[in-house]
């Protein structure tokens, strides 16, 4: 009997919209800064910096973050230097991985123009449309108000670029919105964003942070959203929401995800541990990541 030893690298690799990823892990937008890239060498299959917008955004006034049980609530407000300065600094994120860019606009026109601009940059492999930020006054989550608005904005972006586009959706109405994004030409779907949430300081009787909940607290919600969407669309799904361990990654892939984003977990753990847990799991079950996708036994 010939036993073939497969290299860990091969076992972890996946393909997303024709783009080879050496691991299924992608940093969730806004959770990995260029200053921390040295700490995550070898972990990710693609790079994904914080959302860019047409004009610079100062972001929301502090307090911007508050801790909750098994998670945190943030209201950053898409702080970013605007697309032109973003592109000037983009080489800092080139660590030899496919580069995905998260984009957001306040209007359909802004989304279209931004996709055209980003699509023309040869360093960028794909564009993730942030249609679900809960922390900005206009745009953001309103694009996820229903299938009609999702379809409209994805269609505008589809016309603006030939690059693969991923639509990042919120959990509410996710199946209908996912179908709409797919029919408008999205190449993949990122499921899901943070969940609208509030923290209150009872001692000071103050509302602390009104923003989006992330972390392990939201994992079962995200897992359900990924599972339901994978049963409803043909395009690949990128799982996102509370993924904190290698077993979590496996669960999202079993639910049907092609790749998985790591966000808040990277604040409390070394993401390298998550990847090695995934590798140990694969060893144990004798599967490759590519075999995991949707491979629930019942």
């Amino acid at each position: 009997m010939v036993v073939r030893e497969r290299k860990t690298e091969t076992r972890l690799a996946v393909e997303l919209c024709g783009i080879p990823l050496r691991t299924p892990l992608i940093p969730a937008s806004g959770t990995l800064t260029k200053e921390a890239l040295g700490e995550v060498e070898g972990v990710y299959g693609a790079m994904l910096p914080k959302t860019t917008t047409p004009a610079p955004r100062a972001g929301n006034p502090p307090p911007r973050v508050a801790e909750t049980y098994a998670g945190m609530v943030n209201s950053i407000g898409l702080q970013n230097p605007g697309v032109e300065r973003f592109l000037e600094g983009l080489d800092a994120f080139d660590i030899g991985l496919p580069l995905f860019v998260s984009a957001a606009g306040d209007t359909l026109e802004e989304f279209g123009a931004l996709c055209e601009r980003l699509g023309a940059d040869e360093r960028i492999s794909a564009i993730e449309l942030n249609l679900s930020c809960p922390n900005v006054e206009c745009g953001g989550l309103t694009f996820c108000a229903g299938p009609a608005s999702v379809e409209e904005v994805v269609a505008v972006c589809r016309r603006a670029t030939g690059k693969p586009i991923f639509a990042k959706l919120t959990f509410e109405g996710v199946v209908e919105n996912a179908r709409a994004a797919e029919s408008a030409g999205a190449d993949a779907l990122t499921i899901m964003n943070t969940i609208p949430a509030l923290t209150i300081d009872a001692h000071r009787r103050e509302a602390l942070v009104r923003g989006g909940l992330s972390g392990p607290a939201i994992k079962p919600v995200a897992l359900r959203a990924v599972y339901d969407v994978c049963g409803a669309v043909e395009v690949p799904v990128i799982g996102s929401g509370g993924v904190t361990s290698g077993i979590d990654v496996a669960e999202f892939m079993l639910a049907g995800a092609t790749a998985v984003q790591i966000g808040t977990a990277s604040f409390v753990r070394d993401p390298k541990e998550i990847l090695s847990e995934l590798a140990s799991y694969l060893d144990k079950v004798g599967l490759d990541t590519a075999d995991l996708m949707g491979a629930l036994s019942s």
């Binding site: 806004g30 959770t31 990995l32 800064t33 200053e35 921390a36 700490e39 914080k50 610079p56 100062a58 972001g59 929301n60 006034p61 502090p62 307090p63 911007r64 973050v65 508050a66 945190m72 943030n74 950053i76 702080q79 808040t264 990277s266 604040f267």
Partner: peptide, 23 residues
């Protein structure tokens, strides 16, 4: 003194307003 999420610059949570504009 600011509330922090990550501590390594990733989350943009510990915003401090600066004179040059923004945080």
């Amino acid at each position: 003194e600011e509330r922090m999420g990550c501590g390594n610059g990733s989350c943009n949570g510990c915003a401090v307003p600066v004179r040059s504009g923004g945080y």
